[in-house]
Write a protein that binds this DNA or RNA. Structure first.
Length: 962
RNA sequence: GCCGGUGUGGCGGAACUGGCAUACGCGCACGACUCAAAAUCGUGUGAGGUUACCCUCAUGUGGGUUCAACUCCCACCACCGGCACCA
């Protein structure tokens, strides 16, 4: 009988499917194992050898664990949303829905042709509305907890894919998918606040059984660094005095006034807080009179007017008083109040109006600060004032509504402009000889116009915008920058006035977007300082002791770091991780379930209306304008606000491909649930995942994102564990035969179908494992396939030649079968599948020609089944075993059979191999020594020399030292 | 630059806890079967010296520890992967 894989494999695949042998039960009494492989996106190209790496390994593991008596869940599904699927549909000129369905069908066929033991009863598909309903639902939980937010900012934009990208999707300044150089684009985008979980994501790694390399890579990506934030006050010699005008019913002793006075005085300014007349219902003119006649206001004065005090400040200027600056804090402009209570004096004062034309000329600058949480004065009033005064209006969240807190630190920032820097080396502050701002820094924007070299700065900022990420981030590039002339800051340690520069080597999104430059102890600062001839001062010597550092000189740098941080700043931890850009301007993704209402703002779609289904459209190509194709579908976009019922519009951006894959492993536990994404009881039974097989390339993408989602869901009490993946098993990349990455354009993509056709799935499976260690990168080389095929063929003859015999096992066979079971068991546990295959081959080589029993052949079939399940089933049938080989318990072996009665000793002289000795097990050192000494080669090696010492390792080795 | 990893025959690779380096497979050579070929089976296959037996040298390089090192320690080299003007 010949081995014909083509015939037997189809048959058994059908059998497994019909008998549902791989379906796993919830709440079985057996111990559970959850084995997971990364679910594929069903591309048009079909399954490739890269997929096989983890699928086959995970399949072997699953089958092995089943045989060992576990309830094993080994599911698969489809990650079918996203750019590749959409691009493929565009290319084929069909709807993504259609091509996706087709591709899934094809994939499934290929997967089944490999005999993989997936539990198809748990299949999920991210594009199925019953699935993405829950993706949307989870998104809304993020939204409700303030972890999904909308912001306008510079993001990475891929001009080819015509969509925004997350930071993780940009590799070397290029789009991770298509390799196009990304651009920076100012866009409104949805973000997930993954940065809030930065620390948790680092901490969680500790307890996981993951390869160190993977943990490290995630840790580096999150990029925690400890340092300090230090403020460098801006020099403004013209300001001598502050006068704080309190609000309508206040006194100088309440609100933030005493605190602010103290803070300003600490910095050497004169501060006055007049006790205004006429409270609680004052007259603005009367108060202005009082201030005018009792206090000196001049061009060195800054007036801080809080609420009604702001109105008085404007009145003073209207009268012709000149001051240096005016800061209006929560100052009313319309006379309307949010709480509806009347404040007649204020309304009366405001409604008289102001002569803004005149007022504007009386102060060098105006600044308006409103509180977004104000419960009295609408913050829109601030905008009105700012417009009229031509000033910059800042809307912030005050410590206490209407700035009624005892401390309002944001005010201090406004009154005393300073540049806040982040540094990991605060101990070098005495060497900070200049400060550098990122060109994108908002401070540069507001300061630029006043600068002495305005044009030069504007030009530099413009130039920076035009540079793409690659050029900007090239480290070998010569540093460039311009000085912000007319601006100086004070080094808080040395009290020196130092210059402020703008340079693109400082990045806007890290730290505070500003640095203190210490050219003596930072290479980049040094390059910059040398080019622009800025001073360089050594402050730490080679032995790590401070010098030229005032009272800190002589201290060890570690000690100084602590002390200096305490004295001049605050310790601060920053992360490189950035918030996750979560919207895409493409069609084929989950619609973001939000509605924009002109009155109510952004309103979530009510839960019972989920899923927000992706509408069917004719044109789904990207628009390129930064808007999703969905925006063009009026009938879908226009809806009623769920809160107030007025006309509103749907959010038209879709989610990135990473959304559906961020929680799919939870759905497998309870895939058909209509009321929840999965019930807690099922999750408790199955999770966490025992082994997660997948690629290294997902370490800082899917693996990080899904841990974040899971941790969030855990915090909401929706999942039972904070970490989903107990053990991670990455695999090496399979390169093409030419040693290059497999790609269609190179034409080096290996097609598994051809091998299956020629040699069968069992050969392909075992060959794939035999190629090399699972974690290692390997080149696909089909030459070796034949070796595995020969092995299966020899196994076939071994079994078929012995089925009808009544042989007994020879001693050798008993030893070999025990050995192979043991070795395979160990190999699977340690994921050394290549050596498992070797063990099988050695077994076949060793027992050919031996007398072998049916019992032993059955054991062999069960052991082989995880690797080559089809042929193993056939063996099982031939050997008249009952049922399926896949449901047989793992064979046991007698460990005593492994201990031969004869020990083979290695004989060494001076550590060099000189011969072997076969001697009865348990022989004494004396006996071994005597027998060994008789061997000629050993005698020759010892010769006339004297044996000084004998090293004896029982049952293994004897070494004569001469 | 920083952080990981890997270096073993012609090739893919194995070697437990320091104990016969090169298992297993490919390839190659020779032989058997055959009219012949393929397939299959058998034998051999690290390098050099020696026609035998045997000796010497070999696990990226140089050193060290040890009776004994692919394995442990130190220094260096090469390649692969990740991060990277991250203050």
């Amino acid at each position: 009988m010949k081995y014909t894989p083509g015939k037997i494999e189809k048959k058994w695949q059908k059998f497994w499917s019909l008998k549902k042998v791989y379906h796993s039960k919830n709440f079985s009494k057996k111990p559970k194992k959850y084995i997971l492989v990364e679910f594929p996106y069903p591309s048009g190209a079909g399954l490739h050898t890269g997929h096989l790496r983890s699928y086959v390994a995970a399949d072997v593991t699953s089958r092995f664990l089943r045989a060992q008596g576990n309830e094993v869940m080994f599911p698969l599904g489809w990650d079918a949303f996203g750019l590749p699927a959409e691009n493929y549909a565009i290319k084929m000129g069909v709807q993504p829905e259609v091509s996706t369905k087709q591709n899934i069908k094809n994939f499934k066929k290929q997967i089944n042709s490999l005999g993989l033991s997936f539990d198809w009863s748990r299949e999920v598909n991210t594009t199925d509305p019953n699935y993405y309903k829950w993706t949307q639902w989870i998104f809304l939980q993020f939204f409700k907890k303030g972890l999904a937010y909308e912001a306008e900012s510079l993001i990475n934009w891929c001009p080819k894919d015509k969509t925004g990208l997350a930071n993780e999707e940009v590799v070397d300044g290029k789009c991770e998918r298509c390799g196009t150089v990304v651009e920076k684009k100012e866009m409104r985008q949805w973000y997930l606040r993954i940065t809030k979980y930065a620390q948790k994501l680092i901490d969680g790694l500790q307890s996981l059984d993951w390869p160190e390399a993977v943990k490290l890579q995630q840790e580096n990506w999150i990029g925690r660094s400890e340092g300090a934030e230090i403020e460098f006050p801006v020099v403004n010699p013209r300001v001598k005095k502050f006068i704080i005008l309190h609000g309508r019913a206040s006194t100088p002793d309440n609100n933030f006034y005493p605190w602010l006075k103290k803070e300003l005085e600490k910095r050497g300014f004169k501060v006055e807080v007049p006790q205004m007349p006429g409270i609680p219902e004052p007259d603005d003119e009367e108060q202005a009179n009082y201030v005018q006649s009792n206090y000196d206001l001049d061009e060195g004065t800054v007036i801080v007017g809080h609420s009604m005090g702001g109105v008085v400040a404007l009145r003073l200027l209207e009268r012709g008083i000149k001051v240096h600056g005016v800061v209006l804090v929560a100052t009313p402009a319309t006379g309307k109040f949010l709480d509806g209570k009347p404040r007649h004096s204020v309304t009366k004062a405001v409604q008289k109006g102001f002569d803004y034309g005149k007022i504007k000329k009386q102060s060098d600058y105006f600044r308006v600060i409103s509180d977004s949480t104000d419960s009295v004065v609408p913050h829109e009033d601030g905008k009105i004032l700012a417009d009229n005064l031509g000033a910059y209006c800042k809307i912030v969240a005050a410590n206490s509504p209407h700035f009624n807190g005892e401390k309002e630190p944001l005010l201090l920032d406004e009154l005393l402009p300073n540049i806040k820097v982040f540094t990991t080396r605060p101990e070098t502050i005495f060497g900070a000889t200049y400060v550098v701002l990122a060109p994108e820094s908002p401070y540069v924007q507001s300061r630029m116009k006043k600068s002495d070299n305005k044009n030069e700065i504007e030009q530099y900022v413009e130039d920076t915008k035009k540079k793409n990420e690659i050029i900007r981030l090239a480290t070998d590039k010569e540093k460039t920058g311009v000085e912000l002339k007319g601006l100086k800051v004070i080094n808080p340690a040395t009290k020196e006035e130092i210059p402020v520069w703008i340079a693109d080597y400082v990045l806007p999104q890290y730290g505070t977007g500003a640095i203190m430059a210490v050219p003596s102890h930072d290479l980049r600062d040094e390059q910059f300082a040398k080019k622009y001839q800025l001073p360089i001062r050594m402050v730490v010597n080679e032995k790590g002791k401070l010098q030229n550092s005032g009272e800190f000189s002589g201290l060890d740098f570690e000690v100084a770091k602590k002390k200096i941080t305490e004295k001049f700043g605050n310790s601060k931890v920053t992360y490189k991780l950035r918030d996750w850009v979560f919207s895409r301007q493409r069609y084929w993704g989950e619609p973001i379930p939000l509605i924009h209402c002109p009155d109510c703002g952004t309103v979530p779609v009510p839960e019972k209306e989920l899923p927000v289904k992706l509408p069917k459209v004719k044109k789904y190509e990207p628009t390129g304008t930064g808007e999703s194709p969905l925006a063009a579908i009026d009938s879908w976009v226009n809806v009623k606000c769920p809160k107030c019922g007025s006309s509103a519009k749907r959010e038209t951006n879709t989610m990135p491909q990473w959304a559906g894959s961020s929680w799919y492993f939870l759905r497998y536990a309870d895939p058909k649930n209509k009321k929840q994404f999965a019930n807690l009881k099922s999750l408790k039974y199955w999770l966490p995942i025992d082994i997660y097989f997948g690629g290294m390339e997902h370490t800082t993408l899917h693996l990080l994102y899904s841990r974040f989602w899971n941790q969030f869901l855990f915090d909401q009490g929706l999942v039972p564990m904070s970490e989903p993946y107990k053990r991670r098993q990455p695999h090496g990349i399979i390169l093409g035969e030419d040693g290059e990455k497999m790609s269609k354009s190179r034409g080096n993509v290996a097609n598994p179908d051809a091998i299956i056709k020629q040699y069968g799935a069992d050969t392909l499976r075992m060959f794939e494992l035999f190629l090399g260690p699972h974690e290692q990168t390997i080149s696909w080389n089909e030459k070796g396939v034949v070796g595995v095929y020969r092995f299966l063929q020899r196994s076939w003859y071994l079994v078929s030649d012995n089925v009808s015999s009544k042989n007994k096992d020879s001693e050798k066979v008993l030893f070999e079968i025990a050995r192979v079971i043991k070795r395979v068991e160990e190999a699977v546990r340690e994921m050394k599948f290549n050596t498992a295959v070797s063990s099988f081959m050695e077994f076949i080589n060793a027992v050919s020609g031996e007398s072998i029993s049916k019992e032993t052949l059955k054991k062999f079939a069960i052991t082989l089944a995880p690797f080559a399940p089809h042929i193993a089933e056939e063996f099982w049938k031939m050997l008249s075993g009952k049922g399926s080989v896949t449901t047989q318990p793992w064979p046991t072996f007698d460990p005593k059979k492994l201990e031969s009665q004869i020990s083979s000793y290695v004989i060494q002289v001076n550590g060099k191999f000189r011969g072997n000795l076969a001697i009865a097990r348990g022989s004494s050192e004396e006996d071994v020594k005597e027998e060994a000494s008789k061997i000629e080669t050993v005698r020759n090696a010892i010769g006339a020399l004297k044996v000084k010492k004998i090293v004896f390792v029982p049952e293994r080795l004897i070494n004569f030292v001469v």
